[in-house]
Simulated assay, not measured.
Amino acid sequence: MRGLTGLMGFMVGVLTACGGAVSTGTAVSGPSPAASPAGSPVASPAPIPTGPNVSGCFTEADGKIFEHSGGLPGVITGDGPVGVVITYERRGTVCTWRPLSDRLVAAGYRVLLYARSSSALPEDVAVAMARRLAKENGVERLFLVGGSIGATTAVPAALRLGAKVAGVVAVSGTINTQAAARLTAPLLQIGSANDDYGGADDLARAHDAATNAVSNETMVIPGESLHASALFTSPHGKDVLDRIVAFTDRHKD
């Protein structure tokens, strides 16, 4: 019995380390409060939402909560005429993209974030989410933003959507060169120089291929291996967020 218990504990550890958990409407608990000095009050963790929410970090106070793909949740925040669809990396959640979402909403964009099943093809779901956002009253154009696999599939998704797409932002993606060569919408790639996926060499290949893009920009963070949304909370976070908002502002009309 003791051996079985140990084996089960080992398997749980392996599955946790592998990541890829599906983000659903079930709220996730926040981090445990740090220990306080003797005599100091212990900070209470943030309350966990009990109503409709996306991964516990977006609620109806942030925008419209909706369901897609068999009950998975999503949220539309902001009310601007230009929409942004965000597709997170395989081991990410909508929560790790909140810094970008908040910046975009503050800049006047309408942002859609959604939980995604690991079995769903990110390209297909991104296209479906873009078409959903395009139906919102007042939305005129769309940007596709993705991290890692979400960035890799953002370009083929944009090709399927056509003229409605104002631009593509690919963070730590490895974009197929043939797809990049067909893209005419503006493209911004961002990544860390030493990242194993979406590093400097990957970005350079896609940049060289994207000769038909109206604008073809690349931002490489030197000496780093930070991946996708990890960039937002790094010391480079402000520069990365500023660059994305500047890009969308230039190409939204």
Results as ranks from 00 to 15, higher is better:
1 M>V: 09
1 M>T: 15
1 M>S: 14
2 R>I: 13
6 G>K: 12
8 M>R: 06
9 G>L: 15
11 M>E: 10
13 G>F: 00
17 A>T: 13
20 G>V: 01
21 A>Q: 13
22 V>F: 12
22 V>D: 09
23 S>R: 12
24 T>R: 04
30 G>M: 13
32 S>P: 04
34 A>D: 15
35 A>Y: 07
35 A>Q: 13
36 S>E: 11
38 A>Y: 09
39 G>M: 02
40 S>G: 00
43 A>N: 08
43 A>Q: 14
46 A>T: 15
47 P>G: 08
55 S>R: 06
58 F>T: 00
59 T>C: 00
59 T>R: 05
61 A>N: 14
65 I>P: 01
67 E>V: 12
71 G>R: 13
72 L>R: 00
73 P>I: 05
74 G>Y: 11
75 V>A: 11
78 G>Y: 00
78 G>K: 00
79 D>R: 15
82 V>W: 05
84 V>A: 13
84 V>H: 07
84 V>K: 08
85 V>Y: 09
87 T>A: 14
90 R>T: 13
92 G>A: 11
92 G>Q: 08
95 C>I: 03
102 D>H: 10
105 V>T: 09
105 V>M: 03
106 A>E: 15
108 G>W: 12
109 Y>A: 08
109 Y>V: 08
112 L>W: 03
112 L>F: 06
112 L>I: 10
112 L>R: 14
113 L>M: 13
113 L>Y: 04
114 Y>H: 13
115 A>D: 14
116 R>H: 08
117 S>Y: 03
118 S>V: 12
119 S>G: 08
119 S>Y: 09
120 A>Q: 09
121 L>M: 12
123 E>P: 03
125 V>N: 07
125 V>R: 11
127 V>A: 10
131 R>Y: 02
132 R>C: 10
132 R>S: 11
132 R>V: 01
134 A>C: 00
138 G>T: 01
138 G>I: 01
140 E>Y: 00
141 R>G: 12
142 L>Y: 03
144 L>Q: 00
145 V>L: 09
146 G>R: 06
147 G>D: 07
149 I>H: 11
155 V>S: 01
156 P>A: 02
160 R>T: 13
161 L>E: 03
162 G>R: 04
163 A>K: 09
165 V>H: 01
166 A>V: 07
170 A>Y: 08
174 T>M: 15
175 I>V: 15
176 N>R: 06
183 L>A: 10
192 S>D: 01
195 D>S: 07
195 D>N: 13
197 Y>F: 14
204 A>P: 00
205 R>K: 15
206 A>Y: 03
206 A>N: 05
210 A>N: 02
210 A>T: 06
220 V>G: 01
220 V>N: 07
221 I>P: 00
223 G>P: 06
227 H>A: 06
228 A>W: 00
229 S>R: 05
230 A>K: 09
235 P>K: 08
240 V>A: 04
241 L>I: 05
241 L>T: 02
242 D>Y: 01
242 D>N: 10
242 D>S: 06
242 D>G: 00
245 V>H: 11
246 A>Y: 03
247 F>R: 05
248 T>Y: 01
249 D>T: 14
250 R>M: 08
251 H>Y: 14
251 H>N: 10
253 D>R: 13
